[in-house]
Amino acid sequence: MNEQELSAVLTRAGERLDPDVAALVAGGVRRGRRRRRRASATVALGAATVLALGGIAWQSAPGGGGRRAEDLAVATSPSSPDDQRRLPPDDVLVERLLDHLPEGEVTDVTTEASGGGPDSPIQRGLEISLLLDGVRVEVRLGDMSIDPTRWARFVAPGSMPEGCDASLVDADKATWHEAMRTASENAPTFSSPEEVELTPEQECVSWVSRKREQRCAAKPACLAKRTTYSAKETCGAPECRELADGSWLWPRTGDGGDGSDTSGFRGNWAGLFAPDGWMIDVAAFNSPDPDAGRPRVLRDDPPLSLDQVSALATAAFWFD
């Protein structure tokens, strides 16, 4: 297990888990990850896009032959993670997405896997990024549930770092949060997971966090609190609304902040949280670089409307 794998799982667990090293490294790694994704680009040739992902190449005409996102069949989720669906192969998912985008030139299609592995408490997910007529469209498919039988093994802390204050394992919440705040001061920004170098304080916080989670996993009540999944609670926002199958949809539009952005940057997002644990988040922007400090705005509105990203998020084609 490495810091990025632990960070991914703890981030998915949200408020069910104590804050920990995820808060120290997730933001920097996420920014670097988006830059790496864009380094794996594909080439548009005339009216078709040639994709080469994972050694598999195919052609897909942009726009899906006149099909519209609004016409998509809506998925029906199983009622719990016990019957969780599985994703098709990456190339199949990308092809299905391209087949249901509106007409336009598709370039820079990249994918990145997340989670998964033999000992992982979450299923393998996928992030897809592309440019549609020069502006960014992103899809994230992630397992938000946690397998309790694998959780304790996954958070095994290993050896205590030299100089680490072991008393933090039993510290009250206020003391523990203060230690994390101290460790997070001046946290560096990483351009790739290989460049992650934690400070001694951060290494200690990481170890203590895992140790606290390991102790929790040994207590049935605490383990249940950590790993019990609720689509409603995971969605969390006041704007979330329940769908017929028990999924919760969170549509949103704007500048991604408090509305004070005067650059003209806009995005449309729709996040679906299904009862079986899957999250499908679809986003479209009017910029090719939405994560930049000052995004370049190339058009007034994103290439997908709020209704279109919502239709893609709730579509049945993501699963077999």
Rank of each mutant, 00 (worst) to 15 (best):
T228H: 08
A183S: 05
A284H: 00
W151L: 11
A52P: 12
M144R: 15
I128L: 06
E242L: 04
E242T: 08
E185W: 13
S40R: 14
R140G: 14
L249K: 00
T234K: 14
G246L: 03
P102W: 06
R12H: 11
N2A: 04
S79K: 11
V139G: 01
T49V: 09
A237F: 10
Q59W: 11
L45I: 15
D18V: 09
R241I: 11
F190G: 03
D165M: 00
L141T: 08
L249E: 00
G65T: 01
F317K: 06
M1I: 10
S209H: 09
L306Y: 08
E195I: 05
S60E: 14
V205S: 00
N286S: 00
N186I: 12
L72A: 02
E242D: 06
G55N: 05
V169E: 01
S209K: 04
V74I: 00
T149L: 14
T175Q: 10
R241S: 12
T149Q: 15
C222Y: 05
K225M: 11
R140D: 11
A8T: 15
L312F: 02
T253A: 00
D119H: 09
P303I: 07
A270S: 12
D83Q: 12
E194T: 07
D20I: 14
P303G: 09
K211I: 07
V309M: 03
S159G: 11
D83H: 14
K211Y: 07
K232W: 08
R299Q: 07
R153W: 12
A41Q: 14
P157R: 09
S129C: 09
L17E: 13
E127Q: 15
V50F: 11
A179P: 05
L53F: 05
V25M: 06
E197C: 13
A313Q: 04
G115L: 06
I56V: 14
E103K: 12
L6A: 01
A274Q: 15
S263Q: 11
W176N: 11
D147I: 10
T149V: 15
F190D: 04
A52N: 15
A47N: 10
G293L: 05
R96I: 02
T49K: 03
D170G: 06
V205Q: 02
D172N: 06
V92I: 05
Q308C: 00
R37S: 11
R37H: 11
M1K: 07
T11W: 10
D301S: 11
A174S: 10
S230E: 03
Q4I: 14
S184E: 13
A41R: 14
S114P: 13
T11L: 12
R16T: 11
D83E: 14
E15C: 14
D147R: 15
Q214N: 06
L101D: 03
A61N: 09
R212M: 04
G27S: 12
W250P: 02
W176D: 12
A292Q: 05
A283E: 04
C235I: 06
A61Q: 13
V169L: 01
W278Q: 01
G293Y: 07
M180I: 12
K173G: 06
S184Q: 13
D18N: 12
N286Y: 01
G54I: 06
G116H: 02
H177P: 10
